[in-house]
């Protein structure tokens, strides 16, 4: 298992966000589905060690996040919900900055940047300022960036928010491709149409998992959207 979480609880003051969550992920595409406010962003903040929860155990690629945070973070790639690109820098400059944060520079960094941009069909835009890119290309830049240090585990927090249908489909396909190549992907979303029947599905509702299995099996003949609405009573899907 490349990502394992056990007994993860977290509260903001008196408001409980996560109640004893446990799960494991193998190399594949796993979707974390939940209505707004279900605890997805809290889970991501804990997985990326923006803050920590006492008593929980999180292991990334075999490294305990609490005991050995730097090794664990080195194996992790994150695409945050909020854009984190510097708009005044070019695509390439943004990637170079990130590479340096992971100790990469020179020819090695350059080579990885070319490979990642090619993979996301962004090579020809390398020298454009991010400010000039549309939302879809900005997201693709962020996904290319997160591949630079070859993480084993990839976390994406609602990466398609605000994108048009074509960009959403392209990005969903790109990331499915990464999972097929052996990466462990956790894709948080509140949109059921981004999940295919063969994906591993986790449904988070009110700080707890209410489903964990193959998406097709979980929906059990119904459309995933209907199932999701029925179990969460939410109309955001």
């Amino acid at each position: 298992m490349t990502l394992s979480v056990s007994n993860l609880s977290f509260s903001y003051g008196t408001k409980t966000a996560l109640k004893g969550v446990s799960f494991t992920l193998a190399p594949s595409f796993s979707a974390l589905l939940g209505p707004n406010g279900a605890g997805k962003s809290t889970l991501f903040a804990l997985l990326t060690r923006l803050f920590t929860a006492p008593g929980a155990h999180i292991e990334i690629a075999g490294h305990d996040l609490n005991a050995n945070p730097r090794r664990a973070l080195a194996a992790l790639g994150v695409v945050f919900q909020q854009p984190t690109l510097d708009l005044d820098l070019t695509v390439r400059q943004n990637l170079k900055y990130f590479a340096a944060l992971h100790g990469l520079r020179g020819a090695d960094a350059s080579h990885r940047i070319d490979a990642a941009l090619s993979r996301l069909d962004m090579r020809e835009r390398a020298h454009e300022k991010v400010r000039k890119l549309n939302g879809g290309h900005r997201r693709r830049t962020e996904i290319a960036r997160v591949l630079l240090h070859e993480p084993q585990v990839l976390l994406l927090d609602e990466p398609t928010v605000g994108l048009d249908a074509a960009s959403r489909a392209a990005i969903t396909d790109h990331v499915h491709g990464l999972a097929e190549d052996g990466m462990t992907v956790l894709w948080a979303t509140h949109l059921t149409d981004e999940i295919s029947d063969n994906d591993h599905l986790l449904i988070l509702h009110q700080g707890q998992f209410i489903a964990d299995g193959r998406a097709g099996d979980v929906a059990n003949g119904r459309s995933l959207k209907d199932y999701f609405l029925a179990v969460t009573g939410d109309n955001a899907a």
Binding site: T48, R49, L50, P69, R70, R71, A72, L73, A74, L76, V78, F80, Q82, P83, T84, D86, F98, L101, H102, G103
Partner: peptide, 13 residues
């Protein structure tokens, strides 16, 4: 804050 998050998830102290 977005760029700070990026910074803080780097595997450096």
């Amino acid at each position: 804050m977005g760029s700070m998050r990026l910074l803080l998830t780097s595997p450096l102290p």
